[in-house]
Write a protein that binds this DNA or RNA. Sequence first.
DNA 1: GATGAATGAGGATTCATTCAT
DNA 2: AATGAATGAATCCTCATTCAT
Lengths: 220, 220, 220, 220
Amino acid sequence: MPTTASRRRSIDSAATREAILDAAEALFAERGFAGAGMREIAEVSDLTPASLYNHFRSKEALYEAVLARALTPLLEILRDFASRDQSLPAADEMVGAIMARLARTPHVPRLLHHEAASGAERLQHISREWIRPLFEQGISALRRDPINPWGEGEQALVISAWLHMVFGHFALAPLLAEVRGEDPLSPDALERQTHFFRKLARLMMTPRTPSSEPDPTDGV
Amino acid sequence: MPTTASRRRSIDSAATREAILDAAEALFAERGFAGAGMREIAEVSDLTPASLYNHFRSKEALYEAVLARALTPLLEILRDFASRDQSLPAADEMVGAIMARLARTPHVPRLLHHEAASGAERLQHISREWIRPLFEQGISALRRDPINPWGEGEQALVISAWLHMVFGHFALAPLLAEVRGEDPLSPDALERQTHFFRKLARLMMTPRTPSSEPDPTDGV
Amino acid sequence: MPTTASRRRSIDSAATREAILDAAEALFAERGFAGAGMREIAEVSDLTPASLYNHFRSKEALYEAVLARALTPLLEILRDFASRDQSLPAADEMVGAIMARLARTPHVPRLLHHEAASGAERLQHISREWIRPLFEQGISALRRDPINPWGEGEQALVISAWLHMVFGHFALAPLLAEVRGEDPLSPDALERQTHFFRKLARLMMTPRTPSSEPDPTDGV
Amino acid sequence: MPTTASRRRSIDSAATREAILDAAEALFAERGFAGAGMREIAEVSDLTPASLYNHFRSKEALYEAVLARALTPLLEILRDFASRDQSLPAADEMVGAIMARLARTPHVPRLLHHEAASGAERLQHISREWIRPLFEQGISALRRDPINPWGEGEQALVISAWLHMVFGHFALAPLLAEVRGEDPLSPDALERQTHFFRKLARLMMTPRTPSSEPDPTDGV
DNA sequence: GATGAATGAGGATTCATTCAT
DNA sequence: AATGAATGAATCCTCATTCAT
């Protein structure tokens, strides 16, 4: 049974830890692992660089804690969906929920993009621990939908495409904002985007209308 | 008229310059601007760090040279497509050609992702100079296609989606390789991916079949 | 009159203090003052660095406490010998007793070596307080032995030589262990060493046999 | 064939390297590995800390270079003696020459003392590379002297004793200076010390006069 | 008496860059 | 054009120490 004092201290400590994670998440997302400095993270957290090390053993450890905290909720959403049997297209709702979630932590996709590009050691860990489950849940949801037009070999490509579209929307938001002259993360824009995704999802899940056009052959 | 010696030296110099750009492109793509070091770039180019400065004024200048060299061909492809009037869905071929091009310089999308995530000053320049034209060409191509099912407000979203899917395929390749257990950049995988993109493009350009499902309303 | 509780606490405290001194002695001996860290000392003492400061004002203070605790018994042995009048070569027994004592605290000579090499401020204190008495007792013992072959000017050198041999045996033990393939501090090795020292002591105290060899002249 | 310029640069570089080694040797000897700071070494060498790394990969590498430069001449003296067959006691001259050499680089013994006390990994290397040869040469010299009074098991102890006396004289010089009120490294003191060592060497090599005293038994 | 958290000073090392050669 | 050496600034991190609890 913790004493009042120790409970208080533990609460303070947990708050500080979260503050550090917040600062680190934003900076790592913005500048990548190498580009974000402990000094700056400390400044944003209202601490001295030395103090960070009372909470995280190293920059690496801090980074991993950021990733874990950021990715866990996503995985839980996926798991939640997988556990329910849904008659309406799974992708439709899945995307909606994830959009809502990512809207609250838009740094996550950027973190993932940085990581993905790096091809570094850490990537393996992330891939196995977080992304592969995400894929598996997505593919199994696809399989349960009997009328979708995609063959066995295309399912992974469908999931990848959604991964790119959803995560890309958030990760490339600064770029899109510049180009489109509107913040893609504003509530308004997000709603339109979600709407678009749903429309696209239904399009992608529609049983193939036997088209008269021949399948074009690539000259790639 | 340059002497033989000076022309030779100039050729050597140009070759060295390209070697540096190659090394820098790979490293900037892998680790971002901050994460790539001049020392390492020099090593890969078989030079001393000091020598890099005989070819580029600074790390910044080198980075910009890398971006320019990488993005120019893409833009040219786009311009080329825009100049021709094409009856078949523009997106279909555009994607095919860009896939083929990116397959040869897979670093480019990663560079762009790093840049996009940063939200830094440089982003403005890139956006205006490179991405906005790319968007405009894409949208104008969409508009010229009279039967596509997307409303005026959705066109930018369609282009964005394609940007995410195409660039994401290359930029997240290391991650996808881990997850899918297959290199997404292998010729085989690339062909399947292109095929998938074409199928999807036709799907997305198909005139809307009046669906019986009501348009779902978001609870986002 | 202390209460039971307070006496208990005081005993605990004393025990903790000793534990800290033990840890510190070992680490200072191994790595010198600068090389030993409070963090490590705390770990070995099963405490937090902060807790050390409940027992010692500073690292300096802890170091001095270690020295005092380590050197006092040696000085007492010396004093004890000086107080008794001994007909048999003083050095003989003195060495034996000191060997036995040092065998129990082999860190002491290493501490002294670190200190001696440093030439630092602290050295003065140690020298005056501990080493000078040791020398004086040794020299006065030499003087009381009427038949030793050493002139007045050589007495300090004799004592120095013994200091080096005895302390060196313990201080350089890790090195000797490596070289000789045997731990010089094992009971067996220590006994042989003591035996050797006694033999040498008798040799050094033997009255000079008028040698026919001329005193060699140095070509140094 | 080096150009004039490159030869000049190489000479300058070598001089700088030596300057760094000089500074490092003195500081490592005085304060040990942990106690000596790169900043201070740089200051003494009239350089910036960063510049040190143009000449040595790390503090460790610098330290090892210091040790190598310091110990090599000693080993050569030893090897030289071993190669000559000498009728007069080998130890006598060996000690003289080494004293003369150490008088010129009095830091070496202190370095060795620091190392020896540390029991660290590096010790193995030093022991095998430098000290063991020194021992072997010494013991083989002892063996070649047919009349010395030491048994087979005592030879290593004799060598150890000399190691302690000779190296101790230099390593503990700051302490002895304090205690004896005279610098043991002054030319005068060194000559007396060498003389003493020679006298002692002859004493130790004297064939055993059958003493009537019984060999004392230790009560250790 | 013990400790978790905080910190200023300093640790070694790397950074991008310059310049004489 | 190429480079070895030099460097100021910054890197991550550890240090001894303090203090509220």
